Deep mutational scan, measured.
Amino acid sequence: MSYSVTLTGPGPWGFRLQGGKDFNMPLTISRITPGSKAAQSQLSQGDLVVAIDGVNTDTMTHLEAQNKIKSASYNLSLTLQKS
């Protein structure tokens, strides 16, 4: 079951990613910084990142996902799936 979260910026957003197409692993939330915008939302460590700002992550490399997140200036919309 997927869910959506919109973090209001600017960054830093307070989470780290792992995985990506180049690692043959789905993009997942690997760490959440305590007290951060991510920590105050529904994000959980281990959640799968399905889309970033409406763009499906199935074919994204780790770097492409990082760049997509960094390019979000004020709002960052994520679609996630609980692990």
Rank of each mutant, 00 (worst) to 15 (best):
Q40P: 03
A65D: 00
L27P: 04
I69F: 04
S73M: 13
A72R: 13
V50Y: 06
L80Y: 05
V55F: 11
G19K: 03
V55Q: 12
M60T: 03
D22P: 08
G20I: 01
P10C: 11
S73H: 15
A38D: 02
G14F: 00
V55G: 05
M60K: 02
S41Q: 09
D53R: 04
T57N: 02
K70C: 10
T28H: 10
Q40H: 11
T61R: 05
D53F: 05
I69Q: 02
A39Q: 11
V49W: 01
L48W: 11
K70F: 07
F15V: 08
S41G: 07
R16G: 12
G9L: 04
N24S: 12
T28S: 13
P26L: 02
Q42L: 10
T61Y: 05
A38W: 02
L76R: 02
T6Y: 08
S30E: 14
L76T: 04
L7W: 04
G54H: 06
N67W: 06
P34C: 06
S4Y: 07
K82E: 13
I52N: 00
Q40Y: 08
K21M: 12
K68Q: 11
F23Y: 06
D53M: 13
T59N: 12
A51K: 12
L17M: 12
L43R: 00
M1P: 04
L27C: 07
I69S: 03
A65T: 04
L63R: 14
L43Y: 01
S30H: 14
F15L: 11
Q81E: 14
L43K: 01
S41F: 09
I29K: 01
Q18D: 12
I69V: 13
L80T: 06
M60H: 02
D47F: 02
A51C: 10
A51L: 07
P34W: 04
M25V: 12
V5F: 03
T79Q: 14
S71M: 10
M60V: 03
S2C: 14
K68D: 02
F23G: 08
W13L: 06
L7H: 00
A65I: 06
L43W: 01
S71L: 10
Y3M: 06
T79N: 10
D47G: 02
M1K: 08
K68C: 09
L76E: 00
M25A: 11
S2W: 08
W13C: 04
T6K: 09
L43C: 06
G11W: 05
K68E: 06
T6V: 09
S73W: 10
S30F: 07
P34A: 10
K21S: 11
A72N: 10
L17T: 11
S4M: 11
V50W: 05
Q42Y: 05
N75H: 13
T61A: 04
T28I: 08
N24Q: 08
H62Y: 12
M25E: 13
L63H: 15
Q81H: 07
K68G: 04
A38T: 03
M1S: 11
G14M: 00
A51H: 04
G35K: 11
H62Q: 12
S30Y: 06
L7F: 11
K82Y: 11
R31Y: 14
Q66G: 12
S30V: 07
G54L: 03
G46W: 05
M25H: 10
A51V: 07
S4N: 11
G35P: 02
N56L: 14
M25P: 02
T59L: 09
Q45A: 15
K21F: 08
G54I: 00
F23V: 13
T57I: 04
Y74F: 13
I69A: 05
Q40N: 15
L78R: 00
S30W: 08
A51E: 15
I29L: 08
L7K: 01
G54A: 05
G11V: 05
S71I: 10
S77G: 08
G54Q: 06
S73P: 11
L48Q: 13
Y74D: 15
I32A: 01
M1I: 15
F23I: 12
Y3L: 06
G20T: 02
S36W: 02
V50F: 06
T6F: 08
T59P: 09
I32C: 04
L48S: 09
A39L: 04
Q45V: 14
G46N: 10
S36I: 02
S36G: 13
Q45W: 06
R31H: 15
S2I: 15
Q18S: 15
H62R: 15
T57D: 00
N67L: 08
P12H: 05
Q18W: 06
G35I: 04
T28E: 09
R31L: 10
V5G: 00
L78V: 05
S41W: 07
N67Y: 12
L48N: 11
N56E: 13
L7S: 01
Q66R: 15
Y3T: 06
Q42V: 10
P12A: 06
N75P: 10
I32F: 01
K37T: 14
H62F: 12
T59F: 09
N75Q: 14
D53Q: 08
S83T: 12
S77A: 13
S36R: 03
T57G: 05
T6N: 08
L43I: 10
V55N: 11
T57L: 02
Q40I: 08
Y74E: 15
W13P: 03
A72Q: 14
T33F: 09
V49M: 05
K82T: 14
S36D: 03
V50G: 03
L17I: 09
T61G: 06
F15P: 00
D22H: 04
G11L: 05
L78G: 00
S44L: 08
S77P: 08
F23S: 10
E64W: 04
N75A: 12
Q81T: 14
Q81F: 08
H62M: 13
Q45R: 10
N75D: 15
M25R: 15
G35E: 09
S71A: 15
S83Q: 10
V5Y: 03
Y74C: 13
Y74H: 14
S71D: 13
L63T: 13
Y74N: 14
E64L: 03
